[in-house]
Nucleic acid binder design. Structure first.
Lengths: 156, 156
DNA sequence: TTGCTCCTCACGTCACGTGAGGTGGC
DNA sequence: TTGCTCCTCACGTCACGTGAGGTGGC
């Protein structure tokens, strides 16, 4: 049994796991309750459970998904439509990984999905690297400015 | 005569310099005309000139200022209120630099302004470095994901 | 004079913030 | 039963986008 398969089984066998109410979930994820409801409204997340009365219940995995949404927003500046695309792609990759041994998907089709997904991830990576380079340039410029102010202060 | 002073004189003596209409300016800066008017409404930029009829005319320096605003927005995620503070600080630094030899400002007061300005720039730098580190972490994670997909494709 | 560009309202949009008023759960 | 939390509208906000209707400049 491969490591990946073992992990998948472990996930599948995971105990009921405690679910958080929206207030606690929002605090943990560092976002507002409104944001959680809004992400759900757009279909970015779906709380793993709900109370008999209809209150949302969030799992650990839900919170990680929210964290990922925030990363895309704050680090990369993607809007929620773009994030939906990236998340959807990542979800498909996870599905393919999970269904790797059980041949639910044809090898041909599966390979096509993987190649397509890989392209999307690599496109994302080039976006990230461009951002990183721009940030490094900005930082160098900032250091120059700081150096000049230091010179003015030290001078005489 | 110091290099800085020579540069300041050069700026002061600069010829009328061609000013751009808002359409051209927007194209050059890579923003919309609406954005330029909005930045002006908030006091972030003031076009260097205007036509007799009241049309805005932008200088090269105006365009650089717009580019700086965009950097703060897209790279650092600052909002326009925060950007106003940073720009104002940079303006004060430039003024002090320009008035360095002509003793318009008392040495005591000038030094205090420089120290305060330096602190603000260094605070900004720590923000930038935090962002850079977060981005590096994100990139590392992304590379891991890409590696795993590659494994799935190559495997078998 | 004819286009093209500029002007000022002013309403729309995205990603939520912020109450309003009412129900659920320990 | 009393608080506290959750629910769904629904309007406000920030940084513009997008016409509407009118004037300026070559």
């Amino acid at each position: 049994v491969s490591k990946a398969a073992a992990a998948a089984v472990a996930v599948a066998e995971a105990p009921p796991a405690k679910l958080l109410a929206i207030g606690e979930a929002a605090r943990c994820a560092g976002v507002s309750e409104r944001a959680l409801r809004y992400y759900q409204e757009l279909g970015l997340i779906t709380p793993s459970g709900c109370s008999p009365g209809g209150a949302r219940r969030y799992s650990e995995a839900d919170l990680e998904r929210v964290a990922r949404i925030r990363e895309f927003q704050t680090l990369l500046g993607l809007n929620l439509d773009e994030i939906a695309v990236v998340l959807h792609n990542e979800d498909r990759m996870a599905e393919i990984r999970a269904a790797y041994h059980s041949q639910e998907v044809g090898g041909q089709e599966r390979r096509a999905l993987l190649v397509e997904g890989l392209a999307l991830q690599e496109e994302l990576r080039s976006t990230v690297m461009a951002k990183r380079n721009a940030l490094d340039g900005f930082l160098a410029d900032l250091n120059t400015r700081i150096g000049r102010i230091r010179d003015l202060i030290t001078e005489e």
